[in-house]
Amino acid sequence: MYNFTYHRPATLADAVSLLGSLEDGKALSGGQTLLPTLKQRLASPADLVDLSGVPDLKGVREEAGGLTIGAFTRHADVAGSDVVARVIPALAHLAGGIGDRQVRHMGTLGGSIANADPAADYPAAVVGLGAWVRTDRREIAGDDFFTGMFETALEPGELVTAVHFPKPDAAGYAKFANPASRYAMVGVFIARFGASVRVAVTGAGPFATRVPAMEAALAASFTADAVAGVTVPPDGLNSDLHASAEYRAHLITVMAKRAMEAMR
């Protein structure tokens, strides 16, 4: 790992001001992606700004019937939260399936979505629940947040502070995990809000996106059978040593059925 200067600001204002003023600074949240990246020398920021000392970024609370989760909240704390289990159980289930136990003890919601790994789990929930990503300067709609592979709508130096998840009437998440990394080869999050349905897929393409054909089919009939006949074309999907684009396209339908069966 190349050397860097480490900062641990004690307030959000200090963190934002540091990230705004440092020429080559990078925010460090749980570090479960960033530190492996630094160890492989794939990145070499001059400064790391550790967010663990900022108190305003942690915790889960109910807001407007839904959930607001601080960006620095660890996956294990979302998975183990009684409030999350009661309000959006599918989100607790999703968080409990990220990586492994040790990774969940460190990794954070904000770190995951700001990194925008195409195979990360949380993006499926951000898009699938139509969440709002709050930053130090604005709110970004979940649909507009992910813009490409490892690309988001965040401006340089902009910090995710929390994510607000509206409460669905029902939601389910299913993923086909890579057996080594537990990343989603394909993950599908389905949420119903009254008569409308949102379906979001992670792992298959460069970033989490919705599947309008499945949403229409499920709005007409909210059953696993309704989605079983909807296929997604492989065009533009990821193809790598783990799975071809055609295999991933097939998995989208299979995982959508399983997400319906896991509806809670």
Partner: peptide
């Protein structure tokens, strides 16, 4: 009190 992978945490983070 929580299990972590000590190869993926800086000593300064554990201060």
């Amino acid at each position: 009190g929580r299990s972590v992978k000590s190869c993926t945490m800086l000593a300064v983070q554990a201060d």
